[in-house]
Design a protein around this nucleic acid. Structure first.
Lengths: 216, 216
DNA sequence: GGGCTCAGTAAACAGTTGTGTGCTGAGCGC
DNA sequence: GCGCTCAGCACACAACTGTTTACTGAGCCC
């Protein structure tokens, strides 16, 4: 995994990490577009000018945060989706996985929530692209189920996006719960499970004509 | 509707509107937490100190923007939901109403998208509360359909939230489309209609036991 | 071990920010 | 018409911002 880095490169990587972490931490109380470069370097304990050795500007740092923030969620959910194949257990497990992930990495989820439609175009784009790849993979996983026989590619993709949208929104809801800004985690979980059951029910009774009806 | 205001109060209301509009306009390229008070007054053409005659700070202005931004969407969707009662036409009409609304008031949608999980707690809370009332009303509307006979209050609420979540996400997607940041509007509409059909299908086959199964 | 690389420094730059003060003058109620 | 109200003003304040410059010195390569 870790290539043998020179002592100097290790140190550089270490401060880079510190910058990323400081950015993530500052995002707890404001948005990326209002975080100052000096604010970040102050938190890390280096001089403002040193920032430029690692990133062009704060937006650049934000883009770097996208991959690791969504990557960790992606990983967790992929594991959760492919585990059980029985429908009921699969849903319960998936919701549990999301809840656990939000509990472990709230800063990542907050970052995605805050910047998905945030003020920095480059970051928005990066998040959008990542979610797109995410939907593509989920679509591929769902296509393997027997229920998906006869589904058009477009219908499958729609289903994958529905799942991803729902999982992301559920993660946001769990985060709000942890902050006391919304219903408690238990309620979020109950609602999320119900909604997944609803979708999964619609999926069972979906026919090619349902897709065709919406094409015009 | 409009009470007879004194000439002075009219003028005050006019600059207040100008401040709100300037804030909304500045939100096109940044988030609320990074907008400066001076930036707003400069756009309006008044002195910085005059700002305090209308709002305590920028966050306060943001809270004032929540009601009118979500209010207009709420209004549009309520009309769209109660119009047709035949299922297919209702869905098509609803999606059209959302698309038209986003085309007419992109700044409102952008504001909600950007600040729903944004860096200003007071605004987040206000948006959350407004969406909650929204979900409540949609739940009430859905409860009137014949299909909802025998549904528990919790199941109905879950359904209402699903609809609201979906409508809000669809509005965001239409906005992205208008900016060329995502799939084109026609694609967004097709997907949204399919997803609503999927949900509506799940709804038709939902039974009390589906709700009970997720209670534990 | 000599010379080069380059992460991090200190200092200075010209702007910018939010907020406080005391004032002006148009419009109001009486 | 007189006197009060109060939206908006000009000015001053200290604090902060992003970026550039020339530098230092630890660690690398040969």
């Amino acid at each position: 995994m870790s290539a043998t880095l020179s002592q100097r490169d290790q140190q550089k990587a270490r401060t880079r990490r510190a910058l990323l972490d400081a950015g993530l931490a500052l995002l707890e109380e404001q948005s990326l577009s209002s975080i100052g470069l000096r604010e970040i370097t102050r938190a890390v304990g280096i001089s403002p000018a040193a920032f430029y050795r690692h990133f062009r500007d704060v937006a650049d740092l934000g883009v770097a945060l996208v991959e690791e923030s969504l990557g960790s969620l992606h990983e967790a959910i992929r594991a959760g989706l492919s585990a059980h194949s029985e429908d009921g257990a699969r849903i319960d497990h998936l919701v549990d996985v999301i809840a656990a992930h939000v509990r472990r990495h709230p800063e990542h989820i907050r970052f995605v929530a805050r910047e998905r439609h945030g003020g920095v175009a480059a970051v928005r784009t990066a998040i959008g692209a990542e979610l797109d790849r995410f939907a593509e993979e989920v679509t591929r996983l769902l296509a393997e189920d027997e229920i998906s026989r006869g589904w058009s590619a477009e219908d499958l993709r729609m289903l994958g996006e529905t799942y991803v949208d729902h999982m992301v929104m559920t993660a946001f809801a769990f985060l709000d719960a942890a902050l006391g800004e919304g219903p408690p985690a238990a309620t979020v979980a109950r609602t999320a499970r119900r909604q997944l059951r609803l979708i999964s029910l619609g999926r069972r009774y979906w026919t090619a004509s349902d897709g065709a009806a919406t094409t015009g």
